[in-house]
Simulated scan of single mutants.
Amino acid sequence: MAERRAIAVYVSLEEAAESMSVSVRTIRRWIAAGTLPAYRCGKRAIRIKLDDLEATPQKMPTAQL
């Protein structure tokens, strides 16, 4: 029996920004900084793999008292 491969889900910059509660400009900054991988589809469309988007946030250290 053949193993089923999961198909990657890609979102637009606008969808990524909305799901992370940030601006599209912030998403573009993350891409430019190399923090968030992005993929060009055609001449202009840029898409982000949902798995990459979910992996972007980093846990902040808590203050020690």
Rank of each mutant, 00 (worst) to 15 (best):
Y10Q: 04
L36V: 03
A2V: 08
V9W: 04
S12A: 12
R47Y: 12
A8N: 14
Q64I: 11
A33C: 13
I7A: 14
I46M: 10
A6K: 13
L13A: 03
C41G: 06
T56M: 08
Y10V: 05
A55G: 09
I7Y: 10
A55Y: 01
K43I: 04
K49P: 00
T56P: 01
C41E: 05
E14M: 11
L13K: 01
S19M: 13
I31T: 08
G42N: 09
V9A: 15
A63N: 05
T62R: 07
D52M: 01
Y39E: 14
E14R: 11
K49W: 02
D52K: 00
E14S: 13
E54Q: 13
T35E: 15
I31V: 15
R44C: 04
T56G: 01
L36I: 01
R5M: 09
A8T: 08
L50W: 04
I7E: 12
R47G: 02
I48L: 07
R5I: 09
Q58L: 10
R4W: 14
L13P: 01
C41T: 09
I48S: 00
A8Y: 07
T35D: 13
L13C: 03
V22I: 12
A2F: 12
R4A: 11
L50D: 01
A8W: 06
G42Y: 07
T35R: 15
K43Q: 07
G42S: 09
A33P: 02
A8C: 12
A2C: 05
R28H: 15
I46W: 05
A32D: 15
C41I: 09
E3P: 04
E14C: 07
A55C: 09
P61A: 09
L53R: 00
Q58F: 09
A32Q: 15
S19F: 03
Y10N: 02
R25Y: 15
A2T: 11
E18K: 04
E18F: 06
V22F: 03
R25E: 08
Y10W: 14
A38P: 05
L53Q: 01
L13E: 01
A6D: 10
T56F: 03
I46R: 05
T26S: 11
S19C: 05
A45N: 08
I46L: 15
V22R: 03
Y10D: 02
Q58S: 08
M60Y: 11
M20N: 06
I48Y: 02
I27A: 02
D51R: 13
R29Q: 13
W30P: 00
S21F: 10
E54C: 06
L36A: 00
K49E: 10
E14A: 14
K59F: 12
E3W: 13
L65N: 14
A17H: 01
A45R: 15
P61D: 05
S23Y: 04
R4Q: 14
R40A: 13
A32M: 10
L36C: 02
E54G: 06
